[in-house]
């Protein structure tokens, strides 16, 4: 069985004027379906760039990226949009909910776009927000907002859930709850969840840990015995 996600010698060079900045250098790795994959590294290590490329938000300079049989690196701008729309679920550090929509509506905005979504209400209930469906983001706590964001990502049955520092703006306890939710979703639905973080403590919960440093992959470790969130302390 071929790997679900595959990076092959990916390079990304940002050019501003005469200054060339190499964000990713010859990055290659693979991910399997149903895994929780944690990408870890310091600020400026290239985590976000990697996430952007994988999420179809940015293009690469050279190399190839695959998701399933789809070569993402060869997609056009509009195909990338379709890719984002149908295959990817995003969870942002700052939730990025639309302030003018209720929790339910923030999910529905996504479910309306695609063909076979999960019912929004059901997803929200599954993330434990069954009683806050009609609250606006400003009326929700940070954790609740992130749950809404996760529900929004899950509702479209993504092939890949990308999370960018999902706990970055949350307190410890809430962060744990969110991570638990992500872990549960991965386990229940067999969905590939990629978590980008600078917190190496989270590596313990991952099936696979990719360590980035200065734009290169330092190590790819397979964790045969991932811990559940309850077991992790940081």
């Amino acid at each position: 069985m071929s790997p679900f996600v595959k990076f092959e010698n990916v390079n990304k060079i940002y050019q501003t004027g005469y200054v060339k900045l190499s964000a990713l250098r010859d990055v290659s790795f693979e991910m399997e379906e149903g895994e929780i994959c944690v990408i870890v590294g310091q600020s400026g290590a290239g985590k976000t760039t990697l996430l952007n490329i994988l999420g179809g938000m940015d293009t690469l300079t050279s190399g190839r990226v695959f998701l399933g049989d789809k070569e993402i690196s060869s997609l056009s701008k509009s195909e990338l949009t379709t890719y984002r729309r149908e295959d990817i679920g995003f969870v942002f550090q700052f939730y990025n909910l639309i302030p003018n929509l209720t929790a339910l509506e923030n999910v529905e905005i996504v479910t309306q776009m695609i063909k076979n979504p999960l019912p929004a209400k059901q997803v929200l209930e599954s993330v434990g927000l069954g009683d806050r469906l009609h609250h606006f983001p400003s009326q929700l706590s940070g954790g609740e907002q992130q749950r809404v964001a996760i529900a929004r990502a899950l509702a479209k049955r993504p092939k890949l859930l990308l999370c960018d520092e999902p706990t970055g703006a949350l307190d410890y306890q809430t962060g744990r709850q969110i991570l638990k939710l992500l872990q549960d979703q991965s386990r229940q639905n067999g969905m590939l969840v990629v978590i980008v973080t600078h917190n190496s403590a989270l590596t313990a919960m991952a099936d696979r840990v990719i360590h980035l440093k200065s734009g290169t992959v330092v190590s790819v470790k397979k964790n045969d015995n991932p811990l559940s969130i309850e077991e992790i302390e940081w």
Partner: peptide, 14 residues
């Protein structure tokens, strides 16, 4: 711009 960026990420066509 943030909101716009978000919906773009969410897969809104141009």
């Amino acid at each position: 711009s943030r909101e716009i960026a978000t919906i773009k990420v969410l897969g809104f066509y141009a």
